[in-house]
Design a protein around this nucleic acid. Structure first.
Lengths: 162, 162
DNA sequence: AACAGTTATATAACGTGTTATGCAATTTTC
DNA sequence: GAAAATTGCATAACACGTTATATAACTGTT
């Protein structure tokens, strides 16, 4: 039995490690979603949630809200358009901007999800993570803030410069 | 300024969140690798490290070692073959198995990396994560173990069954 | 020894993120 | 007010993981 090298290497493979945990979580979440008979991808939910919380948003604002890059948003939004869950129209004052809003169908899905799937998912993930000793959410936030503040390449340069 | 919905939603979007942190870490790691003039992808390093630690491994053993699925391993191995960093040969006793080993060039790269890039990356990631309050590595391990033990869909069923 | 079942790898198609780049709409500059 | 710069979105190509399925090699049963 070969042991888990990524785990053994500790900080060296954190990228791969976070990524694979994320992928497993998304896959598992997808399974729960399907139990409810909802035809949607796990990755699309944050978009609907963002629109529900913040009202109509442009592509760029959505990118900020869900924390991915603009091309990723453009693609997912076009999928949601295809599914009829959102509407898109050019902003009246600036023809470049596209305002994305929940369609009636999208709003219904969100309302239903809020009281069924979402609590279920949250509870399952909390069961997985929350019962741990530490405040994992706070740590993730700290890591995200840290990354935003100074890229890795600019870290541990302390040893060299100071 | 729109706020970060994924963060606001807490446990609901953990999958997306882990994934995006992983992607950023990998991208940043890639940058460090390139500073050293090494022509390799961040995701390929765990493979080389595994082969260095555990000697020649089959595709299946590599999959266990780096914690991804077999098709992913097959692809990355074929890239490493292309780069001349590993060698592949059928196992003498079982023609189905492919034994992957570090080539001379691959071993040289590993030896060089061990004393240059890898410590640098570890230090940078430790600087990012390690100075936090909690033992993040232990938490990740706990999450991974938890996922392996019971899929999300089987969690929080406590409320329903007990 | 042949057939059926199992195992190891390969291949194909897809999901979800990324950069890089193009184009149209707006804003700035002279 | 026209040229240049900037901004916002779209598109293309890629990275790296997944599942589903095919194929070849081995094992076990009769």
């Amino acid at each position: 039995m070969v042991d888990d090298v990524v785990r053994t290497l500790g900080f060296l493979c954190m990228g791969s490690r976070f990524r694979r945990i994320g992928e497993r979580l998304q896959a598992d979440t997808q399974q729960i979603i399907e139990e409810y008979g909802i035809a949607i991808q796990a990755a699309q939910y944050p978009f609907l949630a963002a629109l529900d919380r913040a009202g109509p948003l442009t592509i760029g604002e959505l990118a900020q809200a869900v924390g991915i890059t603009q091309p990723g948003v453009t693609r997912t939004v076009s999928q949601l358009l295809e599914l009829g869950l959102v509407d898109m129209q050019a902003a009246p004052d600036d023809q470049r901007r596209r305002l994305i809003s929940l369609s009636r169908k999208g709003q219904e899905l969100v309302d239903y999800s809020k009281q069924s799937v979402w609590p279920r998912i949250s509870a399952a993930v909390a069961d997985l993570c929350g019962d741990l000793n530490g405040p994992i959410l706070a740590q993730l936030a700290a890591i995200e803030d840290g990354l935003a503040e100074a890229a890795l390449a600019r870290r541990a340069a302390n040893e060299e410069t100071t």
